[in-house]
Design a protein around this nucleic acid. Structure first.
Length: 214
DNA sequence: ACCGGGATGTTCT
DNA sequence: GAACATCCCGGTG
């Protein structure tokens, strides 16, 4: 049976509660499936790092709408990034999807990641979706997905719960790539998972830590 | 492993 | 003009 999409109430809570709860949920588009392993919270008008900090604009309109929709923005002249809108309608908080562990549809992801003039020369499975812009490219998420409803799946994209257990160890840190609001520890990731990007990432060859040699 | 430079275009001062 | 929720490549240890 196919996993069921998270419901509206899941997203309607405080963004700092929703963000860690998204770890180990599934991002699904058609045959492409990835397990969320790294997220960041952006707390709307209370958060100087949020695009919503200075009030609504055409670009951020989706963030100011109801929860459970996808806020997609374009950055660095090249890249798309995707967020799940959280909190009550008008609150404008969102969770940035920073990395997923690819679980299905890897060939289609690879084709998407290798399209375009700036494609990497070598691309491991580990790097298919490790980073917010990489995962968007792997899933084909761009401007037309801004506002997509993740609950109804109106554009063929959902976040779903397949019943997998929550991560055993969740680590936190400050958010990546910011100047304003850089001190707030609103990044959550699955400790020890090699598909995490940035600080805290574990190399795939790193052996699991032992408590004791015996 | 870590660091620096370039690519590239929208948004805001 | 400057900043920007990034990525890729090629240098150096």
């Amino acid at each position: 049976m196919s996993p069921s999409p998270l419901d509206r109430a899941f997203y309607e809570r405080d963004v700092r509660e929703v963000a860690p709860a998204l770890l180990h949920k599934l991002l699904v588009r058609g045959d492409r499936v990835g397990r969320i392993v790294e997220v960041e919270a952006y707390a709307g008008a209370d958060d100087p790092a949020s695009h919503a900090y200075r009030g609504p604009s055409p670009r951020t309109a989706t963030m100011f709408g109801p929860p459970g929709h996808l806020y997609v923005y374009f950055t660095y002249g090249m890249h798309w990034c995707a967020n799940a809108v959280c909190g009550p309608d008008g609150h404008a908080s969102a969770v940035l999807l920073r990395a997923v562990a690819p679980e299905a549809g890897l060939e289609r992801m690879r084709v998407a990641r290798l399209a375009g003039p700036k494609a990497p020369r070598v691309l491991t499975d580990r790097d298919l979706c490790r980073g917010p812009a990489r995962l968007c490219q792997a899933f084909g998420i761009e401007r037309s997905f801004d506002g997509a409803d993740l609950v109804t799946g109106d554009r063929g994209l959902v976040i779903a719960d397949d019943g997998a257990p929550a991560p055993e160890r969740v680590a936190t840190s400050t958010r990546i790539g910011l100047t304003a609001g850089a001190d707030r520890p609103w990044r959550w990731f699955v400790a020890g998972d090699p598909h995490v990007s940035g600080p805290g990432a574990v190399s795939p060859r790193q052996p699991p830590r032992r408590r004791r040699a015996g």
